[in-house]
């Protein structure tokens, strides 16, 4: 069984086909890079997979649950983190952990254990009672990621998680994704940074609502005769008809 199975998934808004019959699968524990230029249909596809948007046609199963029948079960079994802040600035670090843990249905004991674990992993014990507002951006992002996997989801969706963060923090962030993947959590990542695409086990590249390339970074580079993912992406994206959202 795969973590994500997608078969000819399509979303139309009126005459506009945002996502045009995409098919792929993501294996358990995989780090799957979901790339595409702005307006390629990435976020629409991701919203359908997270149970936020009903597809027009096609099939998709996420964590074993159907996107049409069981969107609420999908939500329980996935984590989500976006570039936008998922933390409350006027709550402290510990309060944010407790709140999101509680919202994902953890009991008090588990929340306390998790809180201790996260503070240890992030080396943030001294900051536990600081308001999130006062933390540096990189710390907030790492805390967001830890919180998005607090309920040990089967899959974590990361929507441009490293936007606006400096390279050192980005590397640290990817170490956290690898650690989660070793625990068996599947990561579904969108990113603009092509060096990050190299870190993924497999990558898909969307152009104009369709998946144009799918494979490991090395396979794609070989296929298109480029020596970097950046080259691969530019080669595919320059034929795009849609330019922006």
């Amino acid at each position: 069984m795969y973590a994500i199975e997608v078969d000819r998934l399509t979303k139309r808004f009126g005459d506009f086909t945002a996502v045009d019959g995409i098919s792929f699968y993501v294996a358990k524990g995989e780090i799957f890079g979901f790339l595409g230029a702005n307006g390629a249909g990435k976020s629409t596809a991701m919203r359908m997979l997270c149970g936020l948007l009903t597809p027009t046609s096609g099939d998709a199963k996420v964590a074993g649950f159907d996107v049409y029948d069981n969107p609420e079960m999908i939500k329980k079994n996935i984590g989500y983190m976006s570039q936008k802040f998922s933390l409350y600035n006027d709550l402290t670090v510990v309060e944010n952990i407790k709140f999101w843990g509680g919202l994902y249905g953890l009991d008090g004991k588990t929340i306390r254990r998790k809180t201790d674990q996260i503070l240890g992993e992030l080396d943030m014990r001294d900051w536990k009672d600081s308001f999130v507002e006062t933390l540096p951006l990189g710390w907030k992002q790492k805390l967001s990621f830890s919180i998005s996997t607090i309920h040990e989801p089967q899959i974590v969706f990361l929507d441009e998680p490293t936007g606006g963060v400096d390279p050192a923090v980005r590397r640290k962030f990817w170490e956290m994704i690898y650690a989660a993947s070793e625990r068996g959590i599947t990561a579904f990542v969108t990113t603009h940074y092509m060096d990050e695409a190299e870190y993924c086990s497999r990558v898909s590249i969307m152009v104009d609502g369709r998946i144009r390339a799918l494979g490991s970074p090395n396979e794609l580079k070989r296929e298109l005769g480029r020596n970097s993912m950046d080259g691969v992406f530019k080669e595919l994206a320059r034929h795009a008809k849609r330019n922006s959202d």
């Binding site: 329980k76 989500y80 976006s82 936008k84 802040f85 998922s86």
Partner: peptide
């Protein structure tokens, strides 16, 4: 405005 709405939408609450 704070951006937390998106995260809230993803959470398993009715």
């Amino acid at each position: 405005e704070a951006g937390t709405m998106e995260q809230m939408n993803m959470a398993p609450i009715s």
